[in-house]
Amino acid sequence: MTVARLYIIPAADGKSAEMEEALVELSKVVSAADGSEGVELLRDLGNEHRFIFIEKWASEEHHARSLATLPAGSLDGVQAAAGGPPDGAYYDYLLS
């Protein structure tokens, strides 16, 4: 059963391009993790500083294990461009 881990991530003023680049790089790391079923990245059309990062996982446990094995520095670019903490939650797919 695929689960989604969805993050709403704000970029700091003037850091949207840096956030986009950092999230693209992070998507490569996440996509290569055991149990990952892919990543989607979206930017709000009405607010260029707001991104949605959707990770698809085989299970919540796969996501939790991946956090423990992230390569050092994987989140540095995202943290440097962030305009605040991300809002994140798990979601079940009801229809896809």
Results as ranks from 00 to 15, higher is better:
residue 39 V to N: 07
residue 85 P to L: 06
residue 76 D to W: 09
residue 87 D to N: 05
residue 91 Y to G: 05
residue 90 Y to E: 10
residue 8 I to G: 01
residue 92 D to S: 13
residue 53 F to I: 01
residue 71 P to H: 13
residue 89 A to I: 01
residue 29 V to N: 10
residue 77 G to P: 12
residue 8 I to L: 10
residue 30 V to G: 08
residue 1 M to L: 14
residue 24 V to N: 08
residue 45 L to R: 12
residue 37 E to K: 08
residue 92 D to Y: 12
residue 15 K to F: 11
residue 45 L to T: 08
residue 36 S to M: 09
residue 12 A to G: 12
residue 11 A to S: 14
residue 91 Y to D: 06
residue 21 E to P: 03
residue 25 E to A: 14
residue 69 T to G: 03
residue 80 A to R: 14
residue 58 A to W: 00
residue 36 S to R: 12
residue 68 A to E: 11
residue 73 G to N: 09
residue 87 D to F: 09
residue 57 W to Q: 04
residue 5 R to V: 04
residue 79 Q to D: 15
residue 14 G to A: 06
residue 46 G to A: 13
residue 60 E to Q: 15
residue 92 D to T: 07
residue 77 G to F: 14
residue 76 D to I: 08
residue 66 S to H: 12
residue 14 G to N: 13
residue 96 S to W: 09
residue 64 A to E: 14
residue 1 M to R: 14
residue 56 K to P: 00
residue 2 T to R: 13
residue 22 A to C: 08
residue 23 L to S: 04
residue 89 A to S: 11
residue 88 G to V: 11
residue 94 L to M: 15
residue 95 L to A: 14
residue 46 G to W: 02
residue 7 Y to A: 07
residue 46 G to T: 03
residue 81 A to H: 01
residue 39 V to R: 08
residue 12 A to S: 15
residue 50 R to D: 04
residue 28 K to E: 15
residue 69 T to I: 06
residue 25 E to T: 07
residue 27 S to E: 09
residue 13 D to V: 06
residue 96 S to T: 10
residue 40 E to N: 03
residue 79 Q to R: 15
residue 30 V to R: 05
residue 59 S to I: 02
residue 36 S to I: 00
residue 29 V to F: 04
residue 19 M to K: 06
residue 1 M to H: 13
residue 62 H to M: 10
residue 55 E to P: 03
residue 43 R to I: 00
residue 39 V to A: 04
residue 77 G to Q: 12
residue 54 I to A: 04
residue 28 K to H: 12
residue 5 R to K: 05
residue 94 L to Y: 14
residue 83 G to Y: 09
residue 65 R to D: 06
residue 71 P to N: 13
residue 52 I to R: 09
residue 84 G to L: 08
residue 74 S to V: 14
residue 26 L to G: 07
residue 38 G to W: 00
